[in-house]
Design a protein around this nucleic acid. Structure first.
Lengths: 99, 99
DNA sequence: ATATTATATGCAAATAAATATATAAATATT
DNA sequence: AATATTTATATATTTATTTGCATATAATAT
């Protein structure tokens, strides 16, 4: 019954990134940006049919947690996935569905 | 700028399962149960050095969201991963760390 | 039946996250 | 400089999650 030495910092980091992804609209954003798409905030909030502020808020969370990157081009700010593997994660979660 | 028809139910289901995993202690539990281990509640709360009720609570969440299964053997209830792919997800999250 | 061991449940307090609405800031255009 | 466009931030409200502690249930053993 050895007690485990847990690396709480690492666990918290993983949990934190997962929490960033664990939201319906944020998953939708990730799917939009999948396949290397770059989209600006206006495109995203119109496609998802949500408020501009709401989209901006979600994008900010995803960016802060290192899921997305952004790049300004004039007035517009384009968001894109930092890593390609995220969609796989979502797919995997969906695949492991209750049989 | 076509608006997307989103399958909210599916998005919510994926988010819900991700939320179940997105907790430090629950990730620790998943890692304990990785490689096909079956452990009972007592073993888990002692290894993780948390309260019995806390372990039971987390296990319940993981079971409800379809991450874990359980099997009673006498007094003891053994928990185990429903799907092997979960550890991969956690690893992936960790791998995509901020460079 | 009582006690013991193993697990689950209930509840209240604290904390965190989501949502809506309003407003501000940055850039570009005239 | 005034205006329009695009994005971000602030704040209040609601809702969800976490935590700790106490208690309940379930199975077994005496």
């Amino acid at each position: 019954m050895e007690e485990l030495r847990l690396d709480i910092t690492k666990l918290e980091a993983a949990a934190s990134k997962l929490r960033a992804i664990a939201h319906p609209m944020r998953i939708a954003i990730i799917e939009l940006l999948n396949t290397g798409n770059k989209l600006n905030v206006t495109q995203i909030y119109k496609k998802l049919n949500i408020e501009q502020a709401s989209a901006s808020h979600h994008l900010n969370i995803l960016k802060n947690k290192g899921v997305l990157l952004s790049k300004r081009e004039g007035k517009k700010i384009y968001y894109f996935l930092k890593s390609q593997t995220l969609k796989e994660i979502i797919d995997c979660i969906n695949r492991c569905d209750d049989a």
